[in-house]
Design a protein around this nucleic acid. Structure first.
Lengths: 337, 337
DNA sequence: ATGAAAGCGCTAACAT
DNA sequence: ATGTTAGCGCTTTCAT
């Protein structure tokens, strides 16, 4: 039980005042080199660590960001979190994590819980429920306080805050081009996330493109219950002559692949599959799924950098920015060369 | 920019002292019902939220726990984290997350960073490097302070702290029994985690059991590089007449299954596969992998409950406890009925 | 170059 | 039942 030394303890040992010690540790120009060295040496020796609570109280900043995620057992959010965390720890920031579990209420409660000087800002991806209800007063509460807010991936269109997203619509369009060049004509969009903004954007990009190509046809399998999804997918694959599936999320991608195997459809020879999100599951499927890589970790880093800037330039007028990251297609085993 | 009200502000508006207000909000018996009601009403109206930094400073407790995880893009750790988080938020605790990325140095740095009154305790699963180096002075630093420590899953044997683990050795032994009953004789242990305590325990349980059954044979494919693993697995599956694979982690399990498909070995008719950890990947493989369910979320909840108890009973003498959770076999598509 | 003093917001021992 | 006061550990303004 070695007691944590405080400024006061250091000051007493060195026969100095706490303010001198404080300044010395901060390398203030007011303090003599000699004193600085003595102070720092003792501080190191005694393992002095400034008390965060006291510093927060005094400085009105916690160096802590709350990250609100819909789920955590999910490679995409896990990777984003990694990026956020890496960037944060590099800047000596802490990350507290809140899992909304796709629930609006939990999200709102978390925001309330941390809106009391516990954190300096929020990084949020909206829960499914929030996007369905289109209810976002709780986000406005943040914006009306002096806390910062950056949203990523699952964002609210009408909300005037900083957003980091990927080129969902544009990427959808590119995928159609890609498949068309390979000779595919009958495409199918599969999704378990049609309730989400990102799902809708991806679908929209695809649909607009297909509408512009008279020779292309588009089917849909939209369903978030696994069993029903599998049934609908079976119907589509047996009754239509589907050439390719674009899966808007990893779950629908892997299920489509499994159904194809079950029906003895050769992938990619008879059926190509492209799937959103570069997940572990996609990497270890057989054959490896061709995926749209969202560079999730990079997205996380960008998101943190953005909120860091908001906090640094407190007084300057901020231009609300929407930052769009470009995705890339990772061609693997479920598409033809 | 509505300013956050403080106790002082409430007190002024109500013509009371801050201490009365503070006590009223805490439902102190000293305060009249009438006053309590008035105070609470105004507090609610003005959206009063106690300042966490001030409370921490004053109470010497942060109601925050640091969770140090080797990785986060990993269903097991994700599920554990969910459990921890759920339990924590129920008790009005915050969770800050630290990702060691399997690095000893990062782990040590995090512990140092938070050992200054930023948190009340640590929940840790040791990084691979820490387990390899068998270096755990940083954990002792925690134990020598007044901070609490609970380890889970990846624990250090020689360390005298609370631990929550699963019955790795016993479960290994049970798996052998299970396979033997199905008539399998040539078993193979596959693992990408032989450096980890859990991997070693599982292997040990299996080996001891096999040694006791003269009719059983045991092969090994231990390798953490994907490509090399696949090569070694191919050798084993073609040259030996392996009846069943016990994969000590999800990655080796899915790779074994993929290799079997590649070699046109029928699963589970010709080869059974059992795999540790109930992951999304295992659930969406084809066929679905039979897995050892570690009840990870429950494990997370237990872990938090344990540290909560340590914090509540500060003064009582604590008996260091090792809590072992029982795993269950989830029979699915890669084992025969 | 150093120190004294005030105060961040809260709590609790000690008056009244 | 309510109020006064001191202090948690730190920073910063203002002396000296």
């Amino acid at each position: 039980m070695n007691q944590k030394p405080t400024l006061k303890v250091l000051a007493e040992k060195l026969q100095l005042s706490t303010s001198t010690v404080s300044k010395a540790l901060k390398d203030s120009a007011e303090i003599s080199i000699d004193t600085k060295t003595r102070v720092k040496e003792l501080a190191k020796l005694m393992g002095y660590r400034p008390n965060t609570a006291a510093a927060s109280l005094r400085n009105r900043e916690t160096r802590t960001i709350a990250v609100v995620l819909p789920e955590i057992v999910n490679d995409f959010f896990g990777q984003v979190l990694m990026g956020i965390e890496e960037e944060a720890s590099q800047h000596n920031y802490k990350i507290v994590i809140c899992i909304s579990n796709e629930s609006y209420i939990k999200e709102r409660d978390y925001i309330e819980m941390f809106s009391n000087g516990a954190v300096d800002g929020f990084i949020i991806a909206a829960s499914m429920e929030t996007q369905e209800l289109n209810q976002y007063e709780h986000y406005n509460d943040i914006l009306n306080s002096d806390l910062k807010l950056v949203m990523f991936d699952r964002v609210i269109d009408d909300l005037d805050c900083d957003k980091i997203i990927v080129d969902d619509a544009a990427s959808g369009s590119r995928l159609v081009d890609f498949l068309k060049k390979k000779g595919d004509r009958n495409l199918c969009v599969a999704s378990t996330i049609s309730k989400l903004s990102v799902g809708q954007l991806r679908e929209k990009g695809i649909r607009l493109k297909v509408d512009n190509c008279p020779d292309l046809k588009l089917e849909y399998v939209l369903e978030d219950e696994d069993d029903i999804f599998m049934k609908k997918m079976e119907e589509t694959l047996t009754s239509k002559k589907t050439d390719a599936i674009i899966a808007l999320d990893q779950r629908s991608g892997i299920m489509a692949l499994n159904k194809a195997k079950e029906l003895d459809i050769k992938v990619p020879e008879q059926l190509q599959i492209i799937c959103y999100s570069n997940s572990t599951m996609a990497k270890y499927s057989y054959p490896q799924l061709t995926v749209v890589d969202q560079h999730s970790k990079e997205l996380g880093k960008k998101t943190f950098t953005r909120i860091l800037n908001l906090m640094k330039n407190k007084d300057e007028v901020q231009v609300t920015r929407i930052h769009t990251l470009k995705t890339t297609l990772l061609e693997r085993g479920t598409t033809r060369k």
